[in-house]
Every structure is written in structure tokens, then in C-alpha cells.
Design a protein around this nucleic acid. Sequence first.
DNA 1: TAGATTGTTAATCGATTAACAATC
DNA 2: TAGATTGTTAATCGATTAACAATC
Lengths: 214, 214
Amino acid sequence: MAKETKISMAVIRRLPKYHRYLAELLTNDIDRISSKELSERIGFTASQIRQDLNCFGDFGQQGYGYNVRDLYNEIGKILGLDKNYKTIIVGAGNIGQAVANYSKFEKLGFHLQAIFDKNPKLVGIRIRDIEVKDVDCLNSYLAQNPTDIGIICVPKEHAQMVADIMVKHGIKGIWNFAPTDIKVPDDVIVENVHLSESLMTLSYRLNESNLFNE
Amino acid sequence: MAKETKISMAVIRRLPKYHRYLAELLTNDIDRISSKELSERIGFTASQIRQDLNCFGDFGQQGYGYNVRDLYNEIGKILGLDKNYKTIIVGAGNIGQAVANYSKFEKLGFHLQAIFDKNPKLVGIRIRDIEVKDVDCLNSYLAQNPTDIGIICVPKEHAQMVADIMVKHGIKGIWNFAPTDIKVPDDVIVENVHLSESLMTLSYRLNESNLFNE
DNA sequence: TAGATTGTTAATCGATTAACAATC
DNA sequence: TAGATTGTTAATCGATTAACAATC
């Protein structure tokens, strides 16, 4: 079914957006769509949509277009949303708590198993019915509880150390909110959320466009 | 000083990373660096670094390299980090609170003026010494208080409505955390933080690499 | 001066768009 | 069947990398 060529990052980063727009079509009871129609909604060219989807299979039908539900399901599978991931969060500060409470999380198959922090004021509190553990227990916890995904929400100074412990215990993917680049072996996936970079980009664009003059 | 050609988004999104690595060099008391050395640290090619920096001016010196402090300051200016932005947050849930408490925020020149929510349980509480106002007051607040940046942290159903109010009152930039694409006039800048897209990308890459097998 | 390293042009690579034959 | 729309190849566009003359 899936083609064997390497998919570019540009294509991969568009997949969630397809998934989101298809979900929206479903809620609007639209059960079929052409690349041209989808193009008008999503803002990619029809050509690009067909090109993108063809990386993964022949989901369309000439003269008809795409079946919305089928395509939605297929993209969900491609994204791995049918899988379950044992997940932990390290760092229970603002961002850690927000991520822990982030409801979409469980829906995507990420099951939060444990939360760690080193601040004694946070250790022991409950977030989503999960008691925050002392980060000193991280090593032994991971040794006993095989975990797929680690979410790093600690200050940048501690991010690499936390990542090292995670990697040592076989964590396969890291969602990194610390504003630093962590080093991991090639077979570990890191996805960064660098909020300050996003904010700086906004700041740049405001000034570039000369919309902002004090 | 600055060249007049249009800067590509690819270059813009690398600027914050230059800024971050230069800050790190400064804390390590390194006061000069060549594109080659920086390349080894930051992971871009030396050629790309020179190409990128030359979009904005001649910051280097042949035979010497770049002065770290000067370059850091220049990039800060290019990013508009020397400016101040009056900022509000709409939506005081998990993400709204995390953003409000996000300390880097003020350092980058984003000054939080007000927070709004429609949940009566949140209205009246204090976050960072700012009392959460009822979202019904948003319109009149903006009419009386010129604001540069709006941060949207409401559920996707309400994001467009909030954006419309912001735009009506002349907000210039929107930092959007709602998992939807909002429509604004061309002269308003939108920077999206789509957490679930980031998570889906992580999920895809885990499965693609076959690191993850249940 | 000689060595180092930039700024910049040219070459390459990759991603997007256009075109159209295949086919439902 | 005729019309619509895909899948796919070819053309274009843009971004990255390589090369090197300029120069500190």
C-alpha cells in the first residue's frame, strides 16, 4: 500500500492539517471531496494535495475525488493515531501542567503514566489524578516501567540530563519544550516546541511589515 | 544597512536559533566566531550561515569571522526584541495560564496587560498579579486600551470570533494556540502554535522509523 | 605579507506547480 | 458515453550548497 520512497519533512508536516480539515468535513457531513475543493478550503494547491496523498497510496478515484471518511481514517493510520504510547512528563511547572491537562493528548493515543519534578512544593500534588513524583525517582521508575514517550518541560539547564536518562531506558520519542537542542542517538525521535522561537518569529514579522511603529 | 530583497520564511525561522546560540557563546565568554565554527555547533552549513546573515547586512569581517556580541545584538534588533508590545491573553485555561506565567515572555518585550476568560470560575482570579476579566469586556477593553498583540488560548470554536474582535480594534499580531486556522486581513500577522500537529508529527515519525512496535 | 574567512555568484538539489493521459 | 478528476510525469521555482575572488 504505502510507497517506499522517503517522505519529505515538508509533506509530513502537512499531514496533521489534512487530518484536521477532513475531520471538519466529517462534522459537516461532507462525504466526498475533490482535490480542487479541498485546495480552496485548506490553502494548498490541488496539485500539491494529490502529490502529497500519492506518497502514501492511491486514495482517490478518477472522476470522483476522495471519500472523506476513508481518507480521514487512512491519514490517521499513517500518523500512527491508532497506536498507544506510554508517556511521562518531566517538569511539572507551567508548561508541564498545561501539557498534562491538555485534553487532546489522550485522544491521540498518548497515555500519561507519570509526572516528575524536583521542586518539593510540586512533588506530591495531583495533576489529572497522577501524583507528581520526585525526579530522583525517574531512573528507577523507567527501569521498572517501559515507556515510549518522554515530554521534557524542565528548564534548559536540565533538559539534556533528563533526555539522557530517558534515552538510557529506551524511550523512543521526546517531545521537547525546553528552549534548547538536545542530543540523542539517531534512533530516538525529538520533536521540539520552541515557544520563544515562535514568538520571535511573530516579533520579526510585525516589524518587517512595518505594521508596528512605536 | 538591511538589504531590500524579500527574506524567505526559511531564513526567518532560523534567526531565533542564531540568537539562541549566540547567547550561549556569550555566556561562555566566546567573543568571536567563524561561520565554520558556528556551523559545527548549530548544525547549519557554514555557507548557509553566511548566506543567511548576508540577507541583513555585512556583519562579518574577512579573515576574522563575526563578533559574537555585535552579531547577537544585531539579530536581536532584526527580530524586533528591542521593541515593546502591549499584549493580552484571551482564554485563561491550561495553556492561557502557562503562557501568562511564561517568564521569557516579558524579556522578549511582550508586556501582558490583561487576561480574559468566559468561565465564571476563572474570572476574578489573579495570574501574575493580573485579574482575569470577563471576555464580555474584551470589546470595551480594546476600545479603551490600544493593544499590539493578542494571544488566543480559547477552544477552536471561539477562536475566530475572538480574532475578529482583536482585528476590529487594530491588533497587529496574533499568537494563536487554538487548533484551527483563523482568517484575518493581510496586514495582521498570525503565528500559530499547533501543539496537536506537533504531537502528530512525532507520532508519525515514531512509526515511520519502525522504532515503535507494540 | 600570508593566512583566514567573508560576501557573493554559480551549481545543485529538492519541493512545488503545471500539464495531461489514464480511468472511473 | 461524456465529464470529472485522479495519478504521475515534466517544468518551474526556490532554497541550499559549493566555489572562489575580495579583503581583512
